[in-house]
C-alpha cells in the first residue's frame, strides 16, 4: 500500500499539486493498480537476459544535416505571432517567464 507521503512526494517530483482529497483518492486507486501488477512478480524471467530494450530495436543513426529549416526571414516574420498566440507571456518577441536564479 502506498502511503500518503509517497503520493505527495511523487506528485512533487512530477510537478503536480494535489489536494488532500486527491491524495487520498490516488493513494487508494494506485495501490489497487499496483496490487494488480503483482502478477508479474510470479513470472519466472530468469532465462531472459537483462537487455534494456524490450522492443528489440537497434540504434539507427543518420548524418546530422540541416533540412527543412524555415528560412530566416520567415522565422522573423512568423514566429513572433506564433509565440504571442501560443505562449502565456511575451515581451519584445521573446517569451517571458519567471526568474530561474534568485
Amino acid at each position: 500500500m502506498l502511503t500518503k507521503e509517497e503520493i505527495k512526494h511523487l506528485a512533487e517530483l512530477a510537478r503536480l499539486e494535489l489536494t488532500e482529497e486527491e491524495t487520498e483518492k490516488y493513494q487508494k486507486q494506485l495501490s489497487e493498480i499496483l496490487d494488480y501488477m503483482d502478477i508479474l512478480k510470479k513470472i519466472d524471467t530468469s532465462k531472459i537476459k537483462t537487455e534494456l530494450s524490450g522492443s528489440g530495436n537497434i540504434n539507427r543513426s543518420r548524418e546530422d544535416e540541416i533540412r527543412g529549416a524555415v528560412e530566416r526571414a520567415e522565422i522573423e516574420i512568423i514566429s513572433p505571432s506564433i509565440l504571442k498566440e501560443s505562449s502565456g507571456a511575451t515581451k519584445d518577441n521573446f517569451i517571458k517567464t519567471k526568474k530561474i536564479f534568485e
Partner: peptide, 12 residues
C-alpha cells in the same frame, strides 16, 4: 495525472 504519478513511482 494518475498515469504521470504512477510512471514516476515505477521509475523511481
Amino acid at each position: 495525472r494518475r498515469r504521470i504519478i504512477l510512471g514516476a513511482y515505477i521509475l523511481s
